[in-house]
């Protein structure tokens, strides 16, 4: 599950970076509702999330438009959270496995969501260690490798993380409102030790284009990519509070200001050494062997 994300670039840098990622340039990439975008270290469901989707065209022309290339893509700032399949509640994630059964109404409303990274909470009992019944929750910030977001250089040329999503359009009074949700699939590797689900990550321009322009849900990702592609950073609990929106959210645990850790040093774990006396059968000599 993915329920918190960070997207901290200022609007113009973000516009430029996303345009580049979808093979366009900022001049040609329209950004609907740009004013609603606010850089944040702590984006939670029901707040605004920037997405990229195909220009929505009514009725007859729709099929003609879909033949067009990526130039028909637009950026949009929308609300995170779509109506559940029975319309009773709002959900921020859609399971890959249930798109065709529960979300067939919006399965062609493809979008991608570019963020700096997302947060995940590891909890027990885990599938890997059944003994853990109530281990403390560890928070992770997960972003593409390279230098991720650095405190000093939030505008550095780091790679944005692209997640696949679906959106719905809703008529509220006289306005059309768009809501989106992140698609999640089963996780593997390091991510599996943290959580059994992971957002469907599109790591190449081809994957992004295929997803946005394709019809087939099976096209979705390629989760083998995650271990080499993603950085899993242990962070503190600062992000837990939705109101906290500053760089402390993504800093490694030990770098959080005021942290007690930095005053102490890590002790090396002591290895237990066992010694045995062994009699050599051939020579009948006693040897002492050590095992660590």
């Amino acid at each position: 599950m993915c329920g918190r994300a960070a997207c901290v670039l200022d609007p113009s840098t973000y516009h430029e970076r996303v345009s580049k990622a979808i093979g366009s340039n900022p001049k040609d990439t329209e950004w609907i509702n740009k004013d609603a975008y606010k850089p944040s270290y702590n984006i939670s469901p029901t707040s605004n999330l920037p997405i990229v989707h195909k220009k929505s065209v009514a009725g007859f022309y729709k099929s003609a438009y879909s033949l067009l290339s990526e130039s028909s893509l637009v950026m949009d700032t929308v609300c995170w959270g779509v109506s559940d399949f029975n319309g009773k509640s709002t959900i921020n994630n859609i399971r890959l496995e249930t798109i065709s059964t529960k979300f067939s109404r919006i399965m062609r409303n493809r979008c991608v969501i570019f963020v700096d990274g997302f947060y995940e909470w590891q909890k027990g009992p885990t599938h890997t260690s059944p003994k853990k019944i109530n281990t403390p929750k560890q928070t992770y910030f997960i972003c593409p490798k390279q230098d991720g977001i650095k405190k000093e250089h939030p505008k550095s040329q780091h790679e944005l993380l692209c997640m696949a999503g679906l959106y719905e359009t809703k008529q509220v009074d006289s306005n059309t409102r768009i809501n989106c949700a992140v698609i999640t699939g089963p996780s593997s590797g390091t991510m599996f030790d943290i959580h059994e689900r992971i957002p469907c990550i599109l790591s190449t321009p081809e994957q992004i284009s295929k997803w946005l322009n394709g019809d087939d849900v099976d096209l979705l990702p390629n989760r083998q990519v995650t271990n080499e592609y993603l950085d899993f950073r242990k962070i503190g609990n600062h992000v837990n509070k939705a109101g906290n929106d500053n760089v402390n959210c993504i800093l490694p645990q030990s770098e959080t200001k005021g942290a007690i850790d930095k005053f102490f040093f890590k002790k090396e774990t002591k290895k237990r050494r066992l010694e045995f006396d062994v009699v050599d059968v051939d020579t009948e000599q006693v040897k002492r062997i050590k095992v660590e």
Partner: peptide
Amino acid sequence: VKLIEIEADQLGIP
């Protein structure tokens, strides 16, 4: 009381 597995680094106090 059931025990739990806690992965915690032992910190040395200078």
